[in-house]
Each structure stands twice: as structure tokens, then as C-alpha cells.
């Protein structure tokens, strides 16, 4: 696989306090066989925490709200499976 998946985790204060810290923790401890497919960035407020449930992520341009640690890993695996 040549193209990496762009994964953006919102660490704006709202997202971070409402669960984003947990996402950062999960991503930082992901095994290498997953992270090698990912291009991980941490982003300031994506500007939608007022209307959507934090914490938010963006994966290959798709925004997903109300993400938990467990479904983040599922989302990542799913995206990797679709890409190969």
C-alpha cells in the first residue's frame, strides 16, 4: 500500500476534555502494524464542537463525531482494510 491514511485527531480544548485525551492515549500506543499505514496529526479545534458531539476526528477527510477509544481503533482498522 503506498498511500497512507490521513488521521487527524482534534485536540482542541473542548474535544480534548470531553474524551480526546483518551483518543490521543490510544493512538500513541497503537501497534506498529497499524501506525505504519497512518499519517497521524493532532489538530486544533476543527470548529464543529458546538454543533457536534466531541471528541471529533477526521479520517481521510471524513469527519466523525463522538468517537470513543474503542470505536476509533475499529474505524482505523476498517479504513486500512478498505484501502488495501
Amino acid at each position: 500500500m503506498t498511500n497512507k491514511i490521513n488521521l487527524k485527531i482534534c485536540v482542541g480544548t473542548m474535544c480534548y476534555v470531553m474524551g480526546g485525551a483518551e483518543l490521543k492515549d490510544a493512538i500513541e500506543t497503537l501497534p506498529a502494524e497499524l501506525t505504519e499505514h497512518l499519517n497521524i496529526t493532532y489538530s486544533p479545534c476543527l470548529g464543529c464542537c458546538e454543533t457536534q458531539r466531541p471528541p471529533l476526528i477526521e479520517i481521510n477527510g471524513k469527519r466523525i463525531a463522538g468517537v470513543s477509544k474503542i470505536n476509533l481503533i475499529q474505524i482505523v482498522k476498517e479504513e486500512i482494510r478498505n484501502a488495501v
Binding site: 485536540v11 482542541g12 480544548t13 473542548m14 480534548y16 476534555v17 493532532y42 486544533p44 479545534c45
Partner: peptide, 17 residues
């Protein structure tokens, strides 16, 4: 710290910036 978090959010302060 939780209350601090609430203040930072209400005051629109992005710690990382």
C-alpha cells in the same frame, strides 16, 4: 483540573496554540 478545563473551553482558549 476538570473545572480548569471548563474555564478554558468557555473562554475559547486553545492550550496548544
Amino acid at each position: 483540573f476538570e473545572e480548569l478545563g471548563a474555564f478554558l473551553i468557555a473562554y475559547d482558549i486553545d492550550v496548544n496554540a
